[in-house]
Amino acid sequence: MKLAFAKPYRHWVNGCLLAVAACGLTACVTINIYFPAAAAEKAADKVIDEIWQTPAGQAPSHNPDKAPNPTPKESNVPAATPAVTLSVNQESAP
């Protein structure tokens, strides 16, 4: 009762499977040999950030050593905004 067509094709099918398996294995080996340049660059950036303590996403030209630098800048920004609105009010009042 076995399907008649299945038997004669078995050798052909097994051959194909062997080829697929061989391709799969070579692909794995090939991927392993290559150096992951992009991953290495990402890792390098991460390590450099940690060592130089550059905040993530900060321009490299910014000086990261002076920790107090960002704080006055941050305090300057809110101070600058009311000053602008105040001057606008003074101008509009008279």
Binding site: F35, D45, V47, I48, N63
Partner: peptide, 18 residues
């Protein structure tokens, strides 16, 4: 991979230098 990693770092140290 040590050599490749060193080359990658060499480039990135210089690129990110202030």
């Amino acid at each position: 991979w040590e050599g490749e990693i060193q080359r990658t770092f060499a480039q990135r140290w210089i690129d990110r230098a202030q």
